[in-house]
Write a protein that binds this DNA or RNA. Structure first.
Lengths: 338, 338
DNA sequence: TTGTAAGCGTTATCAA
DNA sequence: TTGATAACGCTTACAA
């Protein structure tokens, strides 16, 4: 049977509170007894029972995770899965457990906030969420420290990739290849990333005096392959073909390529294509996809770091965005002019 | 401020223990007070503080999840992610929270078992694990109820898809298409599923009197695209080409197809290919992949159901395997003979 | 520097 | 049918 704190205390002829102070690194204790206790504690592998500890202290050493939401993708999206994984590893190293927040627990319908209060979580990670979800809004505006690796909204600290840099990398790369007839295909603008990337596209194209018109930005009505396929076919029908297409998602990009193929246009020989995300299959597509890589591991770590900071320093909540760098991976779907 | 049980008791002029009994559906209470309490409890949204409850009772309403392991894939593997998601939803409906089990919590290296004891979890799901991991072996042989959706071992109840049926479906489909020169490409046999599928392949081929020899089963040395690519090239070099190849993983299958392509062999015109898993991209490959679909949602639900049963009935631990049906999805990578 | 005692919010036992 | 009271195992004022 595992020893409790009273057992340790008895064995060492000390009081439980002394043990507690030592293992939690609080109060002033003679270095002699401190070492004696630490040694013994290590020997018998003592660890304070999680629930008793949480009950009697303010801290729970637990972080609640809001994943999935209205969108049905949830855990199946490798982009967010990776972020979650790296976040989890980072906080685990520092003693935090990670619990999935659910809004229905048994017969009770709970708001996220109620759930968090009930569990006394120390902080909350929104891996993936929806800014219009009242449940999320409530949590963000509560006193719980929060961090997001997806949504951006008032009162919330978000750790996300630098979409502006991504677009710039893509455009400059296109220029370097010798192209000036550049298009963008983007997913639904309800998603923040798709929205801002088109904004930056227009901005940067103007800045570089590259002409383009409205029709050079196509917004698909879905997130998947087939949306891209349709866009690809539509592009192929135009009399004035682009030389290069920047697509704001690898999945859609792959659809675009096949759509072009279906109209007898080759990538990259007729048209070059740049994707976004670098999903696992991007290197296995035919052609393999030149794309903008987002470092999901880094996102998870930085988010974890920021959240733990907020937890420990009781920082005032305010909107903040931490941008992380992206990079361009050169593969076969793009090719120099001529 | 949320009401505690004492607040409720005071408001209603009852004792905390009475309230407790009612919300937990225990003891004999007059239906009159029961209803009065239930009504009030619902009104003010009272919910017992999780940690206090766990501390004073035997049950924690928490299930620990062992995910990822020696293999580095972890959450990035959509197959397991989906299982986890559906498991989580099922148990949440019945009042259980789900916590990731980590083996390092702060400065303490914990075994899985120690962690589970510390958290007093009610049961454990092994989404993905390794049978050689001492940590896992220890947990499986402990008194904690366990369920696995991946590994199979003594003392453990596993809920997995029927690999035999999958192989039979593939072979019979090949026969239906008119083929008799059938090969199998499999991933490393250290993985249970790859191992048993090759076993079943040999068994069923013999049973049907379809001739094949050793060389007709290729074992790749990796799980990825490139492993398949190499296998595809190797096959293409043979003088005696197969008519159909059963590949035990979609990812590898895609590699095989490209490997064949690289040697000027077309799929399905020269050779048909059947995959396994039905990953998201299987319908978007060129050609789209005929494959064996595993119902991940069902796996998660059945595993959850079985685990909750084990928890509530304190069943004796023993090895057991629950097989779930698979199905064949017909797409473009296969084609009738001639 | 160490110990005492109260308290965290429940549930469980037993008595009324 | 209900209510006292003692756990549950820990932390934390406060006292020594």
């Amino acid at each position: 049977m595992k020893k409790k704190i009273v057992d340790i205390a008895r064995d060492l002829n000390l009081s439980p509170s002394t043990i507690s102070k030592i293992v939690n690194n609080k109060g002033r204790i003679s270095s002699e007894t401190r070492e004696r206790v630490l040694k013994y504690v290590k020997e018998c592998g003592y660890l304070a029972m999680s629930n008793a500890r949480i009950l009697s202290s303010k801290k729970s050493w637990t972080i609640g995770i809001i994943y999935s939401d209205i969108s049905l993708i949830g855990f199946e999206h490798p982009f967010f899965s990776r972020i979650f994984q790296s976040f989890k590893d980072y906080v685990a190293q520092r003693g935090y457990d990670v619990v999935m927040i659910v809004s229905k627990l048994g017969y009770n319908e709970l708001t996220y906030l109620e759930w968090c209060e009930n569990k006394k979580v120390d902080g909350i990670l929104i891996v993936m969420g929806n800014i219009n979800n009242p449940n999320i809004i409530e949590v963000v505006n509560s006193s719980f420290p929060c961090i997001s690796t997806d949504i951006v909204m008032p009162n919330l600290h978000s750790v996300i990739c630098d979409d502006k840099q991504g677009v710039i990398l893509a455009i400059d790369y296109a220029i370097k290849l010798g192209f000036s007839k550049i298009m963008m295909v983007t997913g639904p603008k309800t998603a923040r990333s798709f929205y801002v990337r088109t904004e930056f596209f227009e901005e940067e194209m103007k800045k570089r005096n590259i002409s383009y018109n409205e029709g050079d930005i196509i917004t698909t009505d879905g997130f998947g392959f087939s949306s891209g396929f349709n866009a690809g076919q539509e592009i192929a029908k135009r009399k004035n073909l682009p030389e290069l297409i920047i697509v704001n998602s690898d999945v859609i990009a792959y659809g675009v390529i096949r759509g072009l193929n279906s109209m007898d246009l080759d990538v990259p020989n007729d048209i070059s294509v740049i994707g976004y995300d670098d999903i696992e299959f991007s290197q296995n597509f035919t052609p393999s996809l030149t794309t903008i890589l987002q470092d999901t591991k880094l996102i998870g770590e930085k988010a974890a770091e920021a959240l733990l900071l907020a937890i420990n320093q009781k920082l005032q909540k305010k909107q903040k965005i931490t941008y992380l760098p992206v990079s361009l991976i050169e593969r076969e779907s793009t090719k120099k002019k001529n």
